[in-house]
Nucleic acid binder design. Sequence first.
DNA 1: TCTGGGGTCCTAGGACCC
DNA 2: TCTGGGGTCCTAGGACCC
Length: 393
Amino acid sequence: MNSYFASAEQQANPFLRGRAVGVTGRRPERSVVAAASREAKRLGIRTAMGAWEARRTLPSLLLVAADAEKYEDLTRRLNAVFHEFTDLVEPTSVDESFLDVTDAAGDFLGAVVVAQAIKERLSQECGEWMTASIGVATSKEMAKLASDRQKPDGLVVVPPGRETELLDASKLTDLCGIGPRVEARLFGMGIRSFRELRERPVLDLTAEFHSYGEWLHRAARGEGDDAVVPGDGNQKTYGHSYTLPRDADDAEDIERFLLLQCDKVARRLRRDGLAARGVAAYVRFGDFSEAGRQRQSQEPVNDGLKIFKLARELIRPFLNSGKSVRLVGVSASNLARGTQQASLFEKERRMRSALAALDAIQSRYGDDAWTRASVIAQRHRRHHRGPPRVKKF
DNA sequence: TCTGGGGTCCTAGGACCC
DNA sequence: TCTGGGGTCCTAGGACCC
């Protein structure tokens, strides 16, 4: 999809249509532009630009805070449209999927017809401001590369056998999978184009890049044999992170924000009937360096407080290190179906039913329907500079 | 008073096992 | 005349993507 979040905002709010719009995080002053409307891009706004810098570049830029629920709903509708054409749909991000339309299309020309039909259906289902760029090719790599060639509202076809023409018209980093680091190493080997990459023996490439070298060798020829793998139901990690309103040194301050993230992760785990054995916690310091630890817990967990107690220990070595903390994050891995182990203890059972009730409240009244007393204590202290009223988590 | 938040995959090295 | 070869699980860190 083109300028996904920004287009979604323009679709939802006619006032924003035709205007330069940037979608940012909750607090623009410490955020980046997550998506820029085509009008904003034309005037020099780039994705991932600091919001502060974007505003300086283009004072008329309209900054809108991201609305995750809106985008999730749109993504569901998007994927429903894709499934009208084939069940071989592999979502790779919120706004991007691979579709294997071999059966639906019959032949390559048929695939082009399908692509046009998809664009039409998307416009009907999601609104005319939601445009897509589609690439049609014989491999995922080439289809992706083709889709990036024409924005917005593109349709680029790579007929079978003509893959190298597209590659030779592209930069190395245009190919999904080659980033700036790999590009620099390829330059170091005297390789500056796909033509030069193709001329290298695969052994040169595997000597430098191991198995990734084989992929480079094939990709430079326009080959790609990975099938479209349907479904996205097997997400491997659930994580949340949060940039603090200002860099913090006080461990208690930092840990309370960590707790909020742990509750979010835990709630998603419970919603999906999962529990996690792996817990990772990390911080980003004021200088943007990062540090983190991860650990396997004895038993699978999906209770925010339990996850927090593990996560707190994991980041403890990085607090009070003389560097102030900008961001805290937590992530759950090693996910398994089922809840936490049944407990013999009354206290534990009561906590479970309390969590179920709290989940129900948030489902019905929204995520802000309740919060932890310890977080309120922090807000209190910020305003009154007194001791916190509530100490217990 | 710059630089969000959500992910995946890969490699290296250590502990441990047979 | 010391020290093979197979494997799993785990953590840290990095590259890359939207």
